[in-house]
Simulated assay, not measured.
Amino acid sequence: MTPTRRVFELRTYVAVAGKVDQLVERFSDHAVALFEKHGMASVGYWVASDDQGNPTDSLIYIVAHESRESAQKSWEAFWADPEWSELQAKGERITASATSVFLDPTSFSPVR
């Protein structure tokens, strides 16, 4: 595998039952702009659906970073950002869990 200029991070957030719309709203209204502010490039955001096409409680997204080291610095700055801290302190808990996986694009990937 050849080195790439960017690394991608796939994140899955599971909302507290019935609160996925509030989670999506928090991302739309606050988080995405703060990601950009702290050097993370948004690639895409999705709400997972079940076999019948009904939305689940999962928000899945991909952000791009210059490197894994820059990802760590970006997340540290994001979590320390006064705007995010204030929002978290005021708001109710809407996230039940979150996972993160780093992805390195292959040489034939159209997204690099």
Rank of each mutant, 00 (worst) to 15 (best):
T2Q: 12
T2A: 12
T4L: 01
T4G: 06
R6N: 11
F8S: 02
F8T: 01
L10M: 15
T12D: 02
T12E: 09
T12F: 05
A15V: 02
A15G: 11
K19A: 03
K19S: 13
V20S: 05
Q22T: 12
Q22C: 03
V24K: 08
E25Y: 06
E25N: 15
R26K: 11
F27T: 05
S28H: 15
D29W: 02
D29Q: 13
H30W: 07
H30R: 15
A31K: 00
L34P: 07
F35H: 05
K37D: 00
M40K: 00
M40N: 05
A41K: 04
A41T: 09
V43Q: 07
Y45F: 11
Y45W: 10
W46K: 08
V47I: 14
A48G: 07
S49L: 07
Q52G: 10
Q52Y: 13
N54V: 12
N54E: 10
N54K: 14
P55L: 11
P55Q: 11
T56L: 10
T56S: 10
D57S: 08
L59E: 11
I60R: 12
I60L: 13
Y61D: 13
Y61S: 07
I62G: 07
V63R: 05
V63K: 08
A64G: 14
H65S: 06
E66H: 10
E66N: 10
S67V: 04
R68A: 13
R68H: 06
E69S: 15
E69C: 07
E69N: 14
S70E: 08
S70M: 10
K73T: 04
S74I: 01
S74K: 06
W75P: 01
W75D: 00
W75E: 06
A77V: 10
W79I: 05
D81E: 08
D81A: 06
P82M: 03
E83K: 04
E83C: 04
E83W: 00
E83D: 15
W84L: 08
W84E: 08
E86Y: 04
Q88Y: 13
A89S: 08
E92R: 09
I94Q: 01
T95R: 12
A96N: 03
A96I: 07
S97A: 13
S97R: 14
S97I: 07
T99D: 09
T99A: 08
T99E: 12
S100G: 05
L103Q: 01
L103A: 02
D104M: 08
T106V: 00
S107F: 07
S107V: 15
F108D: 11
V111F: 08
R112C: 08
